[in-house]
C-alpha cells in the first residue's frame, strides 16, 4: 500500500488486490477465443456428419488439430481467469478463496492437459 496520496491509499484494495494484468490477459485470450471459436463453429457447420469416422478425419488434419490445441489453451486460460473473478467477487472468506482458486487451477490444468493429449493422440493416429 502507498504513501498517503489518494491513489496510493486505494491501490490494491479491490477484491483481487491487483488487476490490470489479469484484465489484459482476459482481453488477449478473448481475441484468441473469437478467432478460434469461429473456426470451430464454421467447422461444425461444414461437418454435417458427426459420426466417429467423420470427426476423426476432420481432427487428423494438421490445421484442425493445431487450431483445436490452440483453442483449448486460449479458451481454458480465458475461462480460468473468468472463474477466478467470480470467486474473488463472491467469496468473502480468504480461506475459501484460496481453496477454490487452487481447485480451479487443478481442474483447468488437468482438463486442458487431457484435452490437448486427446487431440495429439488423434492426430498421430492413436486409435482410428
Amino acid at each position: 500500500m502507498g504513501n498517503g496520496t489518494p491513489i496510493g491509499r486505494v491501490r490494491g484494495l479491490g477484491t483481487a488486490h491487483e488487476g490490470a494484468h489479469h484484465w489484459m490477459q482476459q482481453r488477449f485470450t478473448a481475441i484468441g477465443n473469437l478467432v478460434l471459436m469461429s473456426y470451430l463453429v464454421v467447422s461444425f457447420a461444414l461437418l454435417g456428419d458427426f459420426g466417429h469416422a467423420s470427426v476423426l478425419k476432420w481432427l487428423t488434419s494438421p490445421i484442425a488439430a493445431t487450431a483445436i490445441i490452440l483453442l483449448v489453451i486460449s479458451v481454458f486460460w480465458h475461462a480460468r481467469l473468468g472463474l477466478q473473478v467470480l470467486v474473488e467477487d463472491y467469496m468473502v472468506d480468504a480461506g475459501t478463496k484460496f481453496g477454490l482458486t487452487a481447485l480451479l487451477n487443478l481442474a483447468f490444468i488437468g482438463g486442458g492437459a487431457f484435452a490437448i493429449f486427446s487431440v495429439v493422440s488423434i492426430a498421430f493416429g492413436g486409435k482410428a
Binding site: 466417429h52 484435452a115 488423434i122
Partner: peptide, 23 residues
C-alpha cells in the same frame, strides 16, 4: 461465460477424449 466454463468445457473435454478413445 461461467455457464460455458462449467458446462461447455467439460463437454469439450469429453468429446475430444471420446474421439481419441475410439468408436
Amino acid at each position: 461465460g461461467d455457464g460455458m466454463a462449467l458446462v461447455g468445457l467439460p463437454l469439450l473435454v469429453w468429446w475430444l477424449g471420446a474421439i481419441a478413445s475410439g468408436p
